[in-house]
Design a binder for these strands. Structure first.
Ligand code: FES
Ligand code: FES
Lengths: 144, 144
DNA sequence: TATAAATAGGATAAAATTATCCGAAATAAA
DNA sequence: TTTATTTCGGATAATTTTATCCTATTTATA
């Protein structure tokens, strides 16, 4: 469904959010250990998330990645997915036509419509906050 | 969403179905022209579809690919997707955990559930027949 | 100011996916 | 039986995605 990069990006964002609630910054090393991802690759993805203003980076000693606490509830999954995979997954044509066009639909267009809208809706309405809180409370997991 | 291979496989199957209604067999050349895909790569995908009994191949002169007419309505999108991409897209974990497990859910598990079930449902209940008929009647398109 | 710790970012490398090429095998028709 | 046509299947290449490595830059603290 999503690229590996996107999966790592989502999980990393969640972990950074959790640590941010505790006022702590985290390193790519700590993140990749916690979400079970390749460290250097994860660091690259973090750069993309910084560029797209999902997470904040502080360089130098005692630096790391963090998210402002009051921003966590405003960040939606869609923003993370968009930063890494773009919007093709829920806006592009399911069969790879150059664009999804109501007036020139592919064979699966109507069938796909609701599925893709459901996906889009879910991504746009799911906040980092709720995902992070479920991890904190132990009702969901970041690895294995 | 789907791999290129899968997109080609779905479109190829639809085109073969249409031609089969007219009692005609088609070659990878004709197929790739009609669905705008690389010919040799499409031929490989057709082999997978043959192996998975989605389409039938007749070797030698006057051969080609076809689908038994009364079988067209029984073939579901899920069978094609499965033959090429496997079932990970609607059975695997959305964040790449080793398996999607209700008792060990990832952060997006609950949110994803309905989306993935919608996708699975759609794939399992959409027949090649309906997709082919819409192309025949000119209400949907295989390329551009 | 010097040092240590951390992110940024460029250069590669490995792996997976997508794509091409060509000869072998099968088969219908001449 | 020969020929032309067509799928099959192995080898290879190109591209994209995933992953690693190393150096530069930044920055808090001693
Ligand atoms: S045209 Fe293919 S999904 Fe809309
Ligand atoms: S565990 Fe991730 S989707 Fe179910």
């Amino acid at each position: 469904m999503f690229s590996k990069a996107c999966e790592y990006g989502i999980k990393a964002s969640i972990f950074i959010a959790i640590k941010s609630y505790d006022g702590k910054r985290v390193s790519p090393k700590e993140i990749s250990k916690e979400i079970d991802s390749p460290q250097a690759f994860t660091a690259k993805i973090l750069q993309a998330l910084v560029k797209n203003e999902v997470v904040n980076s502080i360089k130098g000693a005692y630096g790391g990645f963090e998210i402002e606490i009051n921003k966590i509830k405003t960040i939606k999954l869609a923003q993370i997915v968009n930063a890494i995979d773009g919007d093709n997954i829920y806006n592009g044509c399911g069969l790879g036509l150059h664009k999804c066009d109501e007036n020139h639909p592919c064979p699966v267009h109507d069938k796909f419509k609701s599925v893709r809208e459901g996906l889009k809706d879910m991504l746009e309405n799911t906040s980092l906050e709720e995902l992070a809180l479920n991890i904190k409370s132990g009702t969901s997991y970041l690895k294995i």
